[in-house]
Amino acid sequence: MKTIIEAQGLTKVYSGGILAVDNVSFSVNQGEIFGFLGPNGAGKSTTIALLTTLLSPTKGTATINGIDITKHPYQARLELGFVSQDLAVEDALSGYNNLRLQAGFYHLSRTEVHDRIAEVLKMVDLTGRSKDKVETYSGGMRKRLDIACGLIHRPRILFLDEPTLGLDIQTRREIWKYVNTLREKNNMTIFLTTHYMDEADSLCDRIAIIDRGVIKTLDTPTALKEAIKNEVENPTLDDVFLHHTGKEMREDFTTKEESFKARNNIRRARR
């Protein structure tokens, strides 16, 4: 199996001295859905920011399809699509224009833009609504549009940071379906983060449990549960989490900015 992401000793210390990601190493295989599972503040978004070249690591590095992200960030960006946890779509523009903009940022040639936009709109079932302004979209539609933006340049790897944050359970299932299809039909590698146990369990091929910037364990959901069978009867991922971190998932927002974004997301998603 081909390794497509290889992180070696990734470390990020923020300017305030906060150690957000602490010497993290792992590798992701081509075509798998790889999940980072951890509570708020665990360092999931920071890890994604490092891998997508939005932040530079304090120590360590990673390769994306063989490209070193610290040495060749520009080339690495061409290989990856990034969908942030922030639902960063432009409400005032139409779905089509959101994608047009994204295509511009990725230097797609004018001749291929239209077909490419039609292609990603179809992937997320938004073709019929593409001319409408995004402010008329539901939360799930916005998220799908955001995912479509991440797909416009046919990346090899798609990074999804908390793709179902603030969505209701039906809409979350729907998003899972799209993510699964992407992997199956397009052989895309998907790196996602979540703090939902069920999401990690049903969607991911392999899961890394991260807490306070450290990977506690990494394996398939089945193997993770198997491993603690002697301790707990019919273990769930919750038990796995408790076993490795000594605590339940907590639901607190660590910074003001984070809580602003979370509230903003939930508000927008509910519309």
Partner: peptide, 8 residues
């Protein structure tokens, strides 16, 4: 961040 993740 969306813009910065793009090769611009």
């Amino acid at each position: 961040n969306k813009m910065l993740a793009a090769p611009i």
